[in-house]
Design a binder for these strands. Structure first.
Lengths: 163, 163
DNA sequence: GAAGATTGAGAGTTCAATCTTC
DNA sequence: GAAGATTGAACTCTCAATCTTC
């Protein structure tokens, strides 16, 4: 627990003769590590609710949608995950009575996921806990938070996620 | 692909009556999304080498260690993963002839992982490709890179990873 | 033929339990 | 009794193949 392991890796990169790639390596590794930290915090809070991060995200997507229902394909697109992952997540949420499947009204191929009252209730309760225990303090002051958000947004924009 | 989905979520959070938690939620979600983007890029490059990100990280840890060998426990600690994950990764690397297990010289319980010449060669080759295809351009200018690194470092420091 | 969803296989992670050695 | 490593079970993700409907 002495020096920053990522700065150590960055020095190793330079010593190895890869100085141009060193800053990018250090940033990418940092993102991976901070993601690990954040996800661990979130999942620790969600575990007592019987939820994983992926399933929580699915619930919130439904909570914020008009009428509390969305096509499964749309959900996979928004969450950037494989269709099979959506099927799996909805399977589990349906088994737990938090979501219900419905036929798509106009497209016979499609399936809608519909939030049940229990699902809505759990989504709100889990969010309240997450807000208090995690989101209220992610480890930075307000000014730094907005800076960090802007930098990450630029990376996302260049990846073509929105814009 | 119109507006930023995370900014939309942040607005939803505020409308829901959780304005203090909105910025933290947006930053955490951004980190998760950028991690997803970066990991996908890295794994696409590593696939032809027969490596995953986790196994690549293990190889690099050995490459930068004195004598190219480390106790398995130490590796799990540095990579912040479960002991079972280390066992699994080393199993696969050993099966592929990239690493070899050795008894710990002084502690009969311990096992060392030792980089083979093939492992060293593959680690260098994969790194060269990663440098050229990913690390050289992670989607930000130099000044922004160093800013982003500092902000993420603060989060890691507060988590007690080093310092 | 293409799109939406599901299925089964393969890989990776975590957890609890176990075994050996300190 | 505690620490290092391994094993098997449970879960999740991705991929390829399949089925139905457009």
């Amino acid at each position: 627990l002495a020096r920053d392991p990522i700065e150590q890796a960055r020095d190793n990169w330079r010593a190895k003769g890869w100085p141009e790639a060193a800053p990018g390596m250090a940033v990418l590794t940092s993102v991976v590590r901070v993601n690990q930290i954040y996800v661990a915090r979130v999942e620790a809070i969600l575990r007592p609710f019987g939820l994983t991060f992926a399933r929580y995200e699915a619930l919130m997507l439904l909570l914020f949608s008009r009428a509390g229902r969305l096509p499964l394909g749309k959900m996979g697109e928004r969450l950037q995950v494989h269709p099979a992952s959506v099927t799996n997540a909805i399977d589990r949420l349906e088994r737990d009575g938090l979501v219900q499947r419905e036929p798509h009204p106009t497209d016979g191929r499609g399936i809608l996921a519909l939030l049940t009252p229990a699902g809505r209730k759990l989504a709100e309760a889990a969010s309240a806990r997450l807000n208090a225990e995690v989101f209220d303090d992610v480890g930075l002051a307000d000014a730094e938070l907005s800076q960090l958000f802007s930098l990450l947004k630029e990376v996302r924009r260049r990846d073509g996620d929105f814009s």
